[in-house]
Design a protein around this nucleic acid. Structure first.
Length: 875
RNA sequence: GGGAGCUUAGCUCAGUCGGUUAGAGCGCUUGCCUCACAUGCAAGAGGUCGUAGGUUCGAGUCCUAUAGCUCCCACCA
């Protein structure tokens, strides 16, 4: 073995072997229970970022754990065509190349997009392999491949036939840059410094006027009413009157509607049904006409009169100027409001009326809400349940058509001859009614329309396959909290609607990756970390454990180079501990430890006991998907117990002359190492596999198909407790040495007077105390030794160290004084507690007994220190 | 405007059912190249657990209020 951990030596080799052996493949298997995770398909917009690595590391840890626990574990990989996101990227690239999507035309553009998919889709899979993800690659799916496209068509047609999909002229969010409609979820609101303009609208046939306050004067030429609150006394007599729209003189009515708040602004609102969602609703209630003044491209149209052709932003300035000039502008105020932006290109979206396809949500929402409320689908952590429910309960009809090219083209055909509209699961060229030529709808579907089908489309739904029967519903869906609305909710109602079953029973929500300052990592802010870079430097295991550790569920995680370094050191520690064990394995005879109990020393029993406790804790945490906490538990066991204590203790018999003892010790070392590797394997698969391969006691063909360690029931309880006392005593001895400035190489003799009942324990632990307490030798005594000594009250009893040339009296005096002080404090605390009647009468008896015991211990300790002080002063 | 989360050592975070002297890693100080590992070993300093109340024999933990930070949702023009 190399002296230092070097993942480059083995990660790729081991992954290739796993692939070769087919360990990742999952098949319907009636002997086993299924466990299924559908990986959220990354967008093919580019390479994977660190967030994907976190996502992957969590899911792979879960799936490897379940596989080792005996499940038929399917980890389904795939990619998402990401309609708008990819199209935006490719368009930008084309512009860079001096061409454009328009110049290429639909066919040319799609060819280009497929090429793009080949390139990035392949790259993503490679990155996932380097991370060590144990996906069943044979099943790899793409949201736009043949099978998935079939599922999309099936769903569209079914929804259409059920009347759950319709086409209509509705107000939708349009992105003027992407030139497409967006769903509500795709609009992100951001704070903006704006203004509130107060504009006078003259009342017809009198000198009065109504002042309206608006943030969007450019839409005023599309106003078709001014609304006031019906209870507002100021305007009561004006309701029903007619106003003259400034600048173009159009006549509009004053209407009363509850939507208007009397105490905001002037209490009068201009109503523009064509460019505002609320106004659209008001318009419907009052049968108002709607006048569109802004077109799809974001420019003013001919309804805007002299402002036609201006961009909306420019028209705003021009209109305000004109209002001012003509005396209609009363005043202007600074104002902060929220403005919607396109989630892909960041442009300001424009609510516009257009013909779009919608999914009717009302009947889909109810079952999806019930499934979660009744606990059929559990969110972890639970707080995200509310997040989901709120989203579901507030959702409006889902606009699913997009004026894009890259995506699933809407399977609706229009007949030029008879005008009939036909939906079809297969491509049509002729109208089924009249045989006339048909043209397909130009639009494609929202990218989330296909993502929503992922849990079952990946299992080849609607084909009724053994795979679908066996692996569906899936087990866990793991994703970050930012796409609960976009994706999780839509998978739930889609699964219920189309398969009649929930798509998954648990939703595991994790946070997003931030940099060391807590900022969201992204390419645009330049603080992104490329997972491949980290893997190149530190290895996949380090990346995985760095991302997983030190976070509890649902929380964001901060990544920094220092963190990676820390875990690289941990890998090195594990590597070298294994190296130590293997280097000493010469002459090994494997034995069954269960039959060798009589030959186990205290330290052996202790480490075996500690291991089984640790295994129990880790299992429980893994069952709860608390992988980060499981990682910490393993880390601490391996480093602070196995390495710091057991390996050191094992050296006594390893380098001793008793061959039988040596062999038993070696067997214990190998056993604990092997089982600890298994505990850690789901989190750090590569290093554990590499070491496992070299173990002389390996008990499976490969660690990833070995059974996960079980907890064992309270094994070696006494030894665990006893060794705890020995360790505590040794630590005290070491601390004393340090405090007394004993030179590192100096080994004094020690004398121990065991406390009552600890005689045997002291005898059994002499060798440990001697080696790890850096003593020349340790002698058990019944009385205080002669001569000048330093005394120490330890868990084992009184420990005496001859002062001799080692320590100076002044330092010892100081130490004892300070110790006396500390003991006094503890005694006061314990006595106070025990004097408290409430405590004595109400606290559990065990706790009171514990407190008494502690008090007695401190009193004895005080006695010892007092006597030592006296002796010291007499000398 | 509504909701959620966070606030514990210089930094990043654990802390289970309310119960030992509140923990870890990094960083810092001191001493060590001790035959697995200096990517290491040993010892140590460092915390009135955001603030104010309350419940309790006992509160980092439960309740109320409050401040700061972060996020989500929402139609106040």
């Amino acid at each position: 073995m190399e002296k230092n951990y070097d993942p480059k030596q083995f990660e790729e080799r081991i992954y290739a072997r796993w692939l070769d052996k087919g360990y990742f493949t999952a098949c319907p298997n009636t002997d086993k229970k299924p466990f299924t995770i559908m990986m959220p398909p990354p967008n093919i917009t580019g390479q994977l970022h660190i967030g994907h690595a976190l996502d992957g590391a969590i899911q792979d840890a879960v799936i490897r754990y379940k596989r080792m626990r005996g499940y038929e574990a399917l980890f389904m990989p795939g990619t998402d065509h990401a309609s708008i996101a990819t199209e935006v990227k490719i368009s930008a690239k084309l512009v860079q190349e001096g061409t454009s999507k328009e110049k290429l035309g639909r066919e040319g553009f799609l060819a280009r997009a497929h090429l793009w998919n080949k390139q990035y889709g392949g790259q993503i899979a490679l990155q996932q392999r380097r991370l060590g993800l144990s996906c069943d690659w044979r099943r790899s799916a793409f949201t736009m491949d043949k099978q998935r496209s079939g599922a999309v068509r099936e769903v569209f047609v079914n929804l259409y036939d059920k009347g759950l999909i319709y086409r209509g002229d509705r107000l939708v969010n349009m992105c003027p840059s992407c030139r497409t409609a967006l769903s509500d979820a795709e609009v992100e609101f951001e704070d903006a410094d704006s203004r509130l303009w107060y504009v006078k609208y003259p009342v017809e046939e009198c000198d009065e006027y109504i002042t309206v306050a608006t943030t969007r004067p450019e839409t005023m030429l599309g106003d078709t009413a001014v609304a006031v609150n019906p209870k507002d006394k100021r305007y009561k007599n004006l309701v029903g009157k007619t106003l003259t729209l400034p600048l173009n003189g159009r006549k509009i009515p004053v209407i009363a509607d509850d939507y208007v708040l009397a105490d905001f602004g002037t209490g009068a609102v201009k109503i523009t049904p064509a460019h505002d969602f609320n106004d659209f609703e008001v318009g419907k209630r009052h049968n108002l006409p709607s006048v569109t003044v802004i077109d799809d491209d974001g420019n003013m149209n001919n309804n805007a009169g002299e402002f036609e052709g201006l961009t909306a932003a420019y028209a705003r300035l021009a209109i305000v100027e004109e209002l001012q000039k003509q005396g209609f502008l009363l005043k202007t105020e600074e104002y902060k409001n929220k403005v919607g932006h396109c989630y892909r290109c960041r442009c300001v979206v424009e609510p516009l009326i257009s013909k779009q396809w919608f999914v009717r949500m009302d009947s889909l929402v109810a079952p999806a809400v019930t499934a979660v409320k009744k606990g059929k689908i559990r969110f972890l952590p639970v707080r995200f349940k509310n997040n989901y429910l709120r989203w579901m309960e507030n959702t409006r009809d889902w606009c699913v058509s997009r004026q894009l090219w890259w995506g699933h083209r809407i399977p609706v055909y229009y007949c030029a001859r008879c005008g009939k509209e036909t939906v079809s699961k297969t491509d049509l060229t002729k109208c089924p009614v009249c045989g006339g030529a048909v043209t397909q709808d130009e639009d494609v579907l929202d990218t989330w329309f296909s993502s929503a089908l992922w849990p079952f489309a990946t299992l080849n739904w609607p084909t009724n396959s053994p795979d679908l029967d066996f692996f569906y519903p899936t087990s866990v869906l793991a994703t970050a909290y930012d796409i609960i609305g976009f994706w999780v909710s839509r998978m739930i109602f889609s699964g219920l609607e189309h398969t009649g079953k929930i798509p998954f029973s648990e939703v595991l929500i994790h946070g997003i990756v931030r940099d060391r300052d807590g900022k969201k990592m992204s390419k645009s802010s330049g603080n992104g970390v490329d997972p491949l870079d980290v893997i190149d430097i530190y290895g996949a295991d380090v990346l995985r454990i760095s991302l997983i550790s030190g976070v509890s569920m649902g929380g964001d995680m901060k990544y920094s180079e220092e963190k990676a370094e820390g875990y690289r050191n941990f890998m090195n520690k594990l590597w070298n501990a294994s190296r130590f064990v293997l280097l000493n394995s010469e002459g090994l005879t494997l034995i069954d430890l269960k039959k060798a109990c009589a030959y186990l020393g205290l330290a052996e029993k202790w480490i075996l006991g500690r291991f089984s406790i640790t295994a129990g804790i880790v299992r429980k945490l893994m069952d709860k998907y608390e992988i980060g906490l499981a990682a910490s538990v393993i880390y601490e066991f391996l480093w602070n117990e196995f390495c710091d204590w057991y390996i050191e203790e094992s050296k006594i018999s390893l380098y001793g002359s008793d061959q039988k003892k040596r062999n038993v010790t070696l067997n214990v070392l190998l056993y604990v190492l092997r089982e600890t590797l298994k505990l850690a394997h789901p989190i750090i698969p590569f290093i554990t596999a590499e070491i496992f391969d070299q173990l002389p006691n390996k008990d499976a063909e490969d660690i990833m198909v070995s059974p996960y360690p079980s907890a064992g029931r309270g094994a070696f309880k006494t030894a665990v407790k006893d060794m705890g006392e020995v360790i505590a005593a040794i630590k005290e001895i070491r601390a004393l040495r340090h405090e007394m400035n004993v030179p590192a190489g100096k080994r004094p003799a020690l004398f121990i007077r065991p406390r009552d009942g600890a005689e045997k324990l002291v005898k059994d632990s002499l060798k440990y105390v001697q080696k790890l307490g850096f003593a020349s030798d340790v002698t058990v005594i019944k009385d205080k030794p002669d001569g000048k000594t330093v005394v120490l009250a330890t868990a084992l009893g009184e420990v005496y160290i001859p002062m001799g040339e080692l320590v100076d009296a002044a330092a010892e005096l100081f130490r004892l004084d300070r110790e006396l002080e500390q003991i006094a404090e503890e005694i006061a605390r314990a006595e106070g507690k025990l004097r408290n009647e409430g405590f004595v009468s109400k606290a559990p008896p065990a706790l009171i007994a514990q407190e008494r015991e502690k008090l007695n211990k401190f009193i004895a300790q005080r006695e010892l220190v007092v006597k030592a002080l006296e002796r010291l002063k007499n000398v």
